[in-house]
Design a protein around this nucleic acid. Sequence first.
DNA 1: GAAAACGGAAACCGATCGGTTTACTGTGAG
DNA 2: CTCACAGTAAACCGATCGGTTTCCGTTTTC
Lengths: 194, 194
Amino acid sequence: MSTSATPRERLLDAAGELFYRDGVNIGVDALCKAAGVSKKSMYQLFRSKDELIAESLASRGPAYQLLLHPGPEDDRSPRERILTVFERQDELVASGNYLGCPYVSTAVELKNPEHPGSVVARHFKQQLTDFFHRELVKAGAEDPSTLAIQLTMVFDGANARAVVRAQPLGGIGAVTAAALLDAAGVHAGEFALN
Amino acid sequence: MSTSATPRERLLDAAGELFYRDGVNIGVDALCKAAGVSKKSMYQLFRSKDELIAESLASRGPAYQLLLHPGPEDDRSPRERILTVFERQDELVASGNYLGCPYVSTAVELKNPEHPGSVVARHFKQQLTDFFHRELVKAGAEDPSTLAIQLTMVFDGANARAVVRAQPLGGIGAVTAAALLDAAGVHAGEFALN
DNA sequence: GAAAACGGAAACCGATCGGTTTACTGTGAG
DNA sequence: CTCACAGTAAACCGATCGGTTTCCGTTTTC
């Protein structure tokens, strides 16, 4: 049951879900009630609500990446590994209750780029760009840095579309990413010569 | 001075600015104080705060579009007119205090796609896509509908990047849009034959 | 078995939330 | 002059905000 995890784990889990579903303005009382943790415990585990925002965001990172990135055992071409991210995004949106990238959404809500939560968001967004960059280098792309940023932008643009329209994306993200990869000469099954 | 406008105009202006700068969770009291309008007046001009959110968002629309879209007097090619949007976006971000597209940000904060503010956001996002679509048809693009959506996604992806990184974009949006236009065969100075 | 630490329930704090109401001021129309 | 209206200031409502504190039961530790 849920009380088997430590109060800290329960808090991080509940915070990750509720901050995402209801926004960072949800109250600390509701949060603690959902986690089955007293406010006293919360405030001796975290300095403030702001810190809990940042830490819950960070704790969600690995699972979110696992959901989107292909694993190292996936030995398809870099292009296919990159497109996997957009296909998984599509599935997430189609499965409903998707409210956009948690990092971007939180950064948008916080407004302040120096908020600890915004710092975490920046870090994880960079990790997605870094993944694209690694794959593009493997594929021998000409300008992997620019292209990695462009793919990240397509990813976030697709998220924005999903949030605003509240409808499935219909593969438009993958199609757009593929167009950019095509234009850069990153083809299917292609690895860099070495 | 600011009190020369009607209470309704002052409220819409203040709401447009404060909802954007501080988020839709800013209090009605602070809003009315900034607008120099009593709460009583506010609540007989608008049914609820939610309605004020939607109406202030809608009232900002024309100015925001004027800021981004090239005017009808700009008789450059469709491609150049499209790229103008991304160049203006770049300038907005570089000018500081840019917190992303007001429509997307509000939709992200509201979470609920049926909120009247979300409906307005959807409508204005569609207007940007429609602008791209019109230009692409003028240029004789092969699949203007898909490409218009892709350009909108690039626009919103650039916004997300600007919000998360809180740094200038360095033209990456225009570069990406140009790459997609290139790939679709929409070239500089090109108009459809007719 | 005693002592100490852990942690939940709930009261409490001043401030603010969205929204309503009362009281008062200015202003324009008849 | 008077009446009606528009609009502000401010009190008020119950609820909730982030955060602290008190109380008490349970578990761990020696």
